[in-house]
Amino acid sequence: MSKAARLALIGKSGAGKSLAGRYLSVGLGVPHIKTGVICREISRMLFDNEDKRSTQRLDDALTALDPSIFLRAALRPIKIENGFVVDALRFREDLNLARDNGCKIVRILAPDEFRFTRLAERQQVFDRQTDNQHRSETELDDAEVDFDIVNDADLVAFEGKLAEIVARG
């Protein structure tokens, strides 16, 4: 992977993608790109919150204009050839765009109860019945990936798996 490493993370809300993205970005010396930041900012401006229901409504509306609108916007300020870690692909079009840009795909897996606890700790409103079924949570469930990493609250083991990816660089 080296200095020009390009990684894209997939996984459900609360799985630990942002934590993994920060770790990998620092370890590989490349920018950490956060696609969700843009959506959450718009949600706060329009709805005065960043609840999943609000961000999912934005996903639905804006991805109708451009299926990879958030990923394209997040990548705009960087030089792709210098490498990056993008921490949240949500849709098939994003996955294809990431692969077209030379990304290795890393899936972060976490048990639902762990995810829901993390979301509650972040005070992110997340309805298990409806929000967990939105396409932004399910569309990449069957995606082919280069690495699967389990985050089940054992931070040492989680960081160990991330370190293995960094070491391959």
Rank of each mutant, 00 (worst) to 15 (best):
I165R: 05
R22V: 08
D148C: 07
R22S: 13
E137T: 00
F147M: 00
L95H: 09
Q56Y: 09
Q124R: 13
F126R: 03
L155K: 00
A143C: 10
A167T: 04
N132E: 11
V86F: 09
L62N: 03
G21H: 10
R6C: 07
T55V: 15
V85W: 13
F126Q: 08
M1E: 10
V150R: 10
P77K: 12
L46T: 11
Y23E: 03
I80W: 03
I78Q: 05
G29K: 03
V156W: 00
D48E: 12
A120K: 15
N49E: 15
R135M: 11
I165P: 05
D48R: 08
G36N: 05
E41Q: 13
E41M: 04
V125Q: 14
S68P: 03
I80P: 01
G14V: 07
Q124D: 14
R57A: 14
K79P: 01
R44G: 03
L97I: 04
V85N: 12
R135E: 14
V145L: 02
L119V: 13
K79E: 15
E139F: 01
E164F: 00
N132A: 15
G102E: 10
E139I: 01
E159W: 01
R72E: 06
I165F: 10
T130K: 14
G14T: 07
D154P: 08
R135P: 04
M45T: 07
L119P: 14
A61R: 06
F158W: 08
D66F: 01
G16V: 04
Q124M: 14
P67S: 09
L89F: 03
S68K: 02
T138Q: 11
S54A: 15
N132V: 00
G102S: 08
C39W: 00
S136G: 13
R72A: 04
D112S: 12
R44K: 09
D48Q: 10
V30K: 04
V150I: 12
D154N: 15
R168F: 09
V125E: 15
D142E: 11
Q56D: 14
E164N: 05
Q124E: 15
Y23D: 03
R115D: 14
N96A: 12
A73W: 01
R44H: 10
L62V: 01
G160K: 07
I42V: 14
R40P: 08
A5M: 05
H134G: 03
R107L: 06
K161W: 11
D66E: 12
T35G: 02
Q133K: 13
R115T: 10
V125S: 15
L75I: 01
F47G: 07
C103Y: 05
D100W: 04
